[in-house]
């Protein structure tokens, strides 16, 4: 079992990124009941905005700009489009699929498929034994942990978090106290867009990005949101860590080519055993 610590750390890093993406999926779904296939494009947009701005104005300014752009686009898309599709699942799904194709092909045309790298953080840290870990990856682990903790805290303590949870728990009751799903959905989309952009920036820090990066992570985000039970924050976190570790360990010790297959198999098995996902308290089927 060589390189065990490194492998586990890599798994935690992937799990943290999946948590950020899955949280966005689960938040928007919990409030608006839209399964947003275009969510992955927020990651792509955030990552590209960060890489491009980092080259122009430096990484320090690029970070807030990237978050602002992704959050703004999420808000715009919600106001123009998704708000009208609430209540019609297929319409929302079709709209988001169209957006996915549009943004992905548009980015492909503008930036081509050539991978681009963000700013690199040099240096490695020695772990026990011979193992080495790049500092950039440790920073990503730290950032994701902080963001996830802050988000979980904000969901419990702040007004917006309360509104989001109220709408997710009981849409009708929330609307009677002045929190209509159509308005709270805007908060959900902005929060989801910003979380996705954080994920995008983190991804750009450790691996080269392409216009297809977002879609790959979106798939994992869906998987963890569904395994965790759509709408559940704790469930998303647990599922994301499970998936991240499973992938890292499986890639290191079983078969590297099948990395993406593990998650899908895990999801199908869990859906067969527990159709509502692991943490769905309301006994609503994730289906």
């Amino acid at each position: 079992m060589d390189a065990l610590v490194t492998t586990i750390l890599l798994g935690i890093m992937q799990g943290g990124l999946y948590t950020l993406v899955g949280l966005g999926v689960t938040l928007t779904f919990g409030v608006t009941h839209i399964l947003n296939f275009a969510h992955g494009e927020f990651i792509t947009v955030g990552a590209y905005a960060f890489v491009l701005f980092a080259g122009a104005v430096g990484a320090g300014l690029a970070l807030p700009l990237a978050l602002l752009i992704a959050g703004g686009i999420a808000a715009l898309l919600y106001v123009v489009g998704f708000r009208r599709t609430i209540g019609n699942h297929l319409q929302g799904l079709a709209f988001s699929l169209g957006l996915l194709l549009f943004v992905e092909a548009f980015m492909m045309r503008t930036f081509t498929a050539t991978p681009r790298s963000g700013p690199r953080i040099e240096g490695t840290v020695s772990l026990i034994g011979q193992e080495q870990m790049p500092v950039g990856r440790l920073i990503v682990i730290g950032v994701t942990i902080v963001v996830v903790v802050v988000t979980a805290f904000a969901m419990r303590r702040t007004w917006i978090g309360l509104a989001l949870r109220a709408c997710g728990d009981d849409e009708f009751a929330a609307s009677t106290v002045g929190l209509p799903a159509k308005r709270v959905g805007l908060y959900a989309f902005v929060v989801a867009g910003v979380l996705a952009a954080v994920a995008g920036v983190c991804i750009a820090l450790v691996v080269p990005i392409t216009p297809l990066t977002g879609l790959a992570f979106l798939l994992k985000g869906f998987v963890v949101a569904i395994i965790g039970g759509l709408g559940s924050i704790e469930g998303t976190f647990v599922a994301a860590m499970m998936l991240g570790l499973l992938e890292a360990l499986g890639t290191r010790y079983v078969e590297a080519g099948l990395t993406n297959a593990y998650g899908f198999v895990l999801m199908i098995v869990i859906l067969l055993v527990a159709p509502a996902g692991l943490f769905n308290r309301r006994q609503v089927r994730a289906g």
Partner: peptide
């Protein structure tokens, strides 16, 4: 799965699995 989300995702995943 009644509302079809898992259906969309599982068919989605199936295509990816075949490619893998």
């Amino acid at each position: 799965r009644s509302s079809g989300f898992s259906f969309a995702i599982i068919t989605f995943a199936f295509g990816e699995l075949l490619i893998q």
